[in-house]
Simulated scan of single mutants.
Amino acid sequence: MQQALALILFLPWFVILSGLFWAYPRQPRTAARRAFDLASIALAVLAFVLVARWAHGYAVPTGTAGSIWRQVLATISGYGVFLAAMLVAWLLRRRWFARAL
């Protein structure tokens, strides 16, 4: 359960970011774009989960931080990977669908 805590806490924010990614720009809204958007969101969440699990196992509680360090490292690294994946998807989508217009 501790490894899933970062995802549970960030899930509302991921829903907001994914909704914005899905909604804008409004056109072109083709089946290919919808499939690309769904795949991008799924890959970003999967990347978050994989990196957060890795970071949770990698972190060594030391000093005054104690065991909270595992959660902090998992959350920070997972969130960074989620944002990076969404940024790459956004850039690819702009480039791919700019040609379609």
Rank of each mutant, 00 (worst) to 15 (best):
83 L>S: 09
7 L>R: 09
46 L>A: 15
41 I>R: 09
19 G>D: 03
46 L>R: 02
54 W>D: 07
68 I>A: 13
79 Y>K: 04
14 F>N: 07
51 V>Y: 08
8 I>D: 06
72 V>K: 05
11 L>K: 09
34 R>P: 00
16 I>D: 08
34 R>N: 05
37 D>Q: 15
66 G>V: 11
64 T>L: 14
87 L>N: 07
90 W>F: 15
61 P>S: 06
28 P>E: 02
94 R>V: 01
62 T>P: 01
27 Q>D: 12
4 A>H: 11
21 F>K: 04
98 A>M: 05
52 A>Q: 07
94 R>P: 00
64 T>Q: 11
58 Y>N: 06
1 M>F: 10
84 A>R: 05
38 L>S: 11
64 T>P: 08
14 F>Q: 11
43 L>I: 09
5 L>G: 07
86 M>W: 06
62 T>S: 10
60 V>P: 02
79 Y>Q: 07
12 P>N: 06
89 A>E: 00
99 R>D: 12
101 L>S: 12
3 Q>C: 09
43 L>F: 14
61 P>G: 06
47 A>K: 10
34 R>H: 08
90 W>S: 13
73 L>K: 01
65 A>L: 06
79 Y>T: 07
100 A>R: 14
8 I>V: 10
22 W>A: 02
27 Q>L: 15
74 A>W: 04
25 P>S: 04
100 A>M: 14
46 L>Y: 08
100 A>P: 06
21 F>Q: 03
42 A>S: 12
18 S>D: 14
62 T>E: 13
77 S>V: 01
70 R>I: 00
31 A>D: 11
34 R>E: 08
19 G>N: 10
50 L>Y: 06
30 T>K: 05
46 L>K: 01
54 W>Y: 13
36 F>W: 02
8 I>Q: 10
